[in-house]
């Protein structure tokens, strides 16, 4: 799945688009995707000026965007798939400009509209981060109720 096909499936856009290509996809089960890290990304201006390191929360976001590509129907216009829980994430090695992240996500549970995934992030064959994520669908209109 190339970037144009990804754009048909997810709503995120630059500078908040965190998956560049999908190399493997089993709908509702698992996927492998690539994220190429460039020094041109805006967060590197401040994180950190002398030592650009990809923020851990954006590594999690990369995993989350890949998960949303796995969930069939996650592009429904009236629904929004939201992150409910991030569990046990570890950042084993800093991600820096020039790294090509190979992200693998695998569904571990999917009952009652709640989807849980295990995620692993590698660069140069070495695990840089891993953890679990949980999502559910909510009505888009309910997000803005106060």
């Amino acid at each position: 799945m190339n970037i144009n096909e990804i754009n048909e499936k997810i709503k995120q856009r630059p500078p908040f688009q965190m998956i560049d290509r999908v190399t493997e996809l089993v709908p509702n089960e698992s996927a492998v995707g690539l994220k190429c890290v460039s020094v041109n990304e805006p967060h590197f201006l401040g994180h950190f000026p002398e030592s650009p390191i990809m923020p851990g929360v954006l590594i999690i976001e990369s995993c989350a965007q890949l998960c949303s590509l796995v969930i069939e129907g996650s592009n429904e216009p009236d629904k929004l798939y939201v992150l409910l829980k991030v569990d046990g994430f570890k950042f084993l090695k800093p991600v820096i400009p020039g790294d090509r992240l190979e992200i693998s996500v695998k569904k571990t549970r999917g009952g009652a509209g709640v989807f849980s995934f295990d995620a692993e992030v590698k660069a140069d064959g070495r695990v840089h981060a891993k953890g679990s994520l949980m999502f559910t669908a909510i009505d888009r209109s309910s997000v803005y109720e106060r």
Partner: peptide, 20 residues
């Protein structure tokens, strides 16, 4: 409330009972 969703998901997945 997030824990309750996890329980609902577990019960659905393990026993086929929807508690939504």
């Amino acid at each position: 409330s997030v824990d309750s969703l996890e329980i609902i998901s577990y019960v659905d997945g393990e026993y086929g009972v929807d508690m939504t």
